[in-house]
């Protein structure tokens, strides 16, 4: 691979990838007030990692964010979502009834806000973990067609 060929791409993406990841977190935590939320933020985080692996090579990306970590993240996100429901059950409410989480008086909104934040965090983990492991599974295979045939 000729590294001089891609020097502009490398420099620009090195500057862009942290901004993309930061924007993902903004979308995640500003989702209550504007457009956005766990699904969008999860995709944006996954795309930041995919951009890194497209430019610096899949092996470098796997060293930075290991496939095992990504798979664990996906499972953790789903468990976090389901766990919030179990927490509400333990507190004596219905499954995923956030009003019961903190045992507040009726009309209090802290339980709702906490529940929404935890659930969106679970969605973020599950979506970004699943999408990155899907990309790793595709990119991990080397094609039978050689580059010269393009």
């Amino acid at each position: 691979m000729n590294s001089d060929h891609h020097v502009i791409l490398r420099v620009v993406s090195k500057a862009l990838i942290p901004v993309i990841a930061l924007f993902g977190f903004y979308v995640q935590f500003h989702g209550d007030f504007g457009p956005g939320g766990g699904f969008q933020a999860g995709v944006i985080m996954a795309v930041a990692i995919i951009l890194y692996s497209l430019i610096f090579g899949i092996a470098a990306a796997m060293r930075a964010i290991t496939p095992g970590f990504v798979r664990g993240l996906a499972a953790l996100g789903f468990l976090l979502f389901a766990g919030v429901g179990v927490w509400a059950l333990i507190q004596g409410g219905d499954y995923l009834d956030y009003d019961a989480l903190l045992g507040e008086e009726p009309g209090g909104h802290h339980g709702q806000h906490l529940g929404i934040m935890l659930v969106e965090l679970g969605v973020l983990f599950a979506v970004s973990g699943s999408l990155v492991s899907i990309f790793y599974a595709f990119a991990g295979r080397v094609s039978e067609i050689r580059d010269e045939d393009w």
């Binding site: 899949i58 092996a59 796997m62 290991t66 496939p67 095992g68 990504v70 798979r71 492991s133 899907i134 790793y136 599974a137 595709f138 990119a139 991990g140 295979r141």
Partner: peptide, 11 residues
């Protein structure tokens, strides 16, 4: 992952 193999091993 089950169809295409775990990323690191297939890589």
């Amino acid at each position: 992952v089950l169809l295409l193999g775990f990323g690191e091993r297939s890589l």
